[in-house]
């Protein structure tokens, strides 16, 4: 009676399936990028969730489940948070564990390439003007958030590098790397000389 998916895992797979299918339906290209993956199975583990999810693509769109008979065509590891923020970041850092790299790349490219014109869909319910205002506000908010994040990162970096001297600058790192390479070469040369004695 082991290895039964719990309610949490089932809810996760069902939620991802529903969200992804909705996204494909709203996509400008109607998920055409997934067509190449038809009848393929992608296994993806989204840390910290340990149970893998299996994505299957058919002409009816995508199905997600926790169990699979046999092996997947590509096995990928990624992060649940990265997966959830995919619509905003449009990128999914991942590692290919096994399987066909081409299929894995097609999957990631298709996922990241989903393009939804939210304003257009929203305008059906709110009218063009309100949809534009909401879209404009959201864009400004995201841009502002990104700018703040970047600015905060830069300030922190400069504080650590120049005020506290706890972090090296890029040029210091490059110089150190060059010195390590040079030392390595000298050590190798020395080892050869010792061997020749």
């Amino acid at each position: 009676m082991n290895n039964q998916p719990g309610l949490v895992n089932i809810s996760l797979s069902k939620t991802i399936e529903s969200v992804l299918n909705t996204a494909i339906r709203l996509d400008e290209q109607q998920g055409q990028a997934f067509v190449a993956l038809e009848d393929k199975v992608i296994q993806i583990t989204l840390a910290p969730v340990q149970t893998p999810l299996y994505f299957m693509f058919t002409h009816y769109m995508v199905s997600v489940q926790n169990h699979l008979t046999g092996e997947a065509d590509a096995v990928i590891e990624s992060n649940l948070l990265d997966f959830m923020t995919l619509p905003m970041t449009r990128q999914l850092p991942h590692t290919l564990v096994s399987g066909e790299p081409e299929i894995a790349n097609q999957f990631i490219t298709a996922l990241c390439g989903l393009d939804i014109d939210w304003e257009e869909h929203l305008s059906h319910y709110t009218g063009d003007l309100l949809a534009f205002k909401i879209g404009h506000g959201l864009r400004q908010f995201i841009q502002g958030k990104q700018a703040s994040k970047q600015s905060l990162g830069e300030t922190l970096k400069e504080y650590l590098q120049f005020e506290l001297n706890t972090l090296p600058t890029q040029s210091q790192v490059n110089r150190f790397k060059a010195q390590v390479t040079e030392t390595q070469a000298e050590v190798d040369r020395l080892a050869e000389r010792i061997k020749a004695l």
Binding site: P5, I10, K40, M56, Q65, L68, T69
Partner: peptide, 17 residues
């Protein structure tokens, strides 16, 4: 619906079956 979803999950079904 949850009972049936559980069944679908545990079937381990895949393309070609």
């Amino acid at each position: 619906r949850i009972w049936k979803r559980h069944t679908i999950e545990l079937s381990g079904i895949r393309p070609g079956h």
